[in-house]
């Protein structure tokens, strides 16, 4: 799954730790999401979308 999380975080100049704190997850989870090694649960995906005021599909895209 493609993720725009790293770009969105960089636009807000947040560190991985800051984003992790805002989402109440570990920094390792943010790293795994950004490197596309882990696909978030639906709950976490909605939480991320809400935080960035975007739709889930604007952040995460299925692989072609």
């Amino acid at each position: 799954m493609k993720s725009r999380l790293r770009v969105l975080r960089a636009e807000r100049t947040w560190s991985q730790a800051e984003l992790a704190e805002r989402l109440n997850v570990s920094r390792q989870t943010i790293n795994a999401l950004e490197t596309e090694r882990y696909e978030p649960s639906l709950g976490l995906a909605f939480k991320i979308a809400k935080l960035f005021a975007l739709k889930v599909e604007e952040i995460f895209q299925p692989d072609e």
């Binding site: 109440n24 997850v25 570990s26 989870t29 795994a32 882990y38 978030p40």
Partner: peptide
């Protein structure tokens, strides 16, 4: 009490 990645 871990987050979802660690539980996984």
């Amino acid at each position: 009490s871990m987050d979802e990645l660690h539980r996984r």
